[in-house]
């Protein structure tokens, strides 16, 4: 079986842990428990007939209190860059972090997850900004760790990009 390491990257509270929890354990909690340090989960996905075992590294949110440790990214085949659609600023942070990640491990496949898609009335991220990113070659998914929408799709699509580089 193919084994791939991926990392969850993004600002604090955007839903990195929740996305893993939904994807791996089909669970969601409204309570916010910040991640301090690293936790690794595993899950097998089927991608175009191939089985891929994902080693998912849940990293702590990058903020003023704790900077992303690039040594954790070593050996990553890809990453999920997560932003909170209800907080525009987390998209700016994601873009900034993406620059640092690329500087550290080079251009590996990644997807942008615009999470909390269920909170439609609080949505803050302008479609035009997403379109700009798409024009730069970024692929993005609207996800909801709460309702599950787009979650599996995002992980599977990332896996697909990792096993068949363009």
């Amino acid at each position: 079986m193919i084994q791939k390491k991926i990392c969850m990257i993004g600002a604090s509270g955007v839903g990195k842990t929740s996305l893993i929890s939904k994807f791996v354990h089909s669970m969601f909690s409204d309570k916010y428990l910040t991640t301090v340090g690293v936790k690794i989960d595993k899950k097998t996905v089927a991608v175009d007939g191939a089985e891929v075992m994902l080693m998912i590294w849940d990293l702590e949110g990058d903020d003023d209190y704790q900077r992303l440790q690039t040594s954790y990214l070593r050996g990553s085949s890809g990453y999920l860059l997560v932003a909170d659609g209800t907080r525009q600023i987390t998209l700016d942070q994601a873009i900034e972090i993406q620059g640092r990640v690329t500087a550290a491990i080079g251009p590996v496949p990644f997807l942008l997850a615009l999470n909390k898609a269920d909170l439609v009335s609080q949505w803050e991220i302008d479609q035009s900004r997403v379109d700009d990113l798409t024009a730069r070659g970024w692929k993005s998914f609207k996800t909801s760790a709460k309702e599950g929408a787009g979650v599996e799709e995002a992980f599977v699509e990332l896996s697909r990009q990792m096993i068949q580089p363009p």
């Binding site: 604090s12 509270g13 916010y32 910040t34 301090v36 949110g61 907080r87 525009q88 600023i89 803050e124």
Partner: peptide, 23 residues
């Protein structure tokens, strides 16, 4: 470590609340 964690928890919750208030 638990103490550090609970400090970070509070700090992060505050940052998020501040961002929401701002918007």
């Amino acid at each position: 470590f638990e103490a550090k964690k609970s400090m970070l928890q509070k700090a992060r919750e505050t940052v998020i609340a501040y961002q929401r208030l701002n918007s």
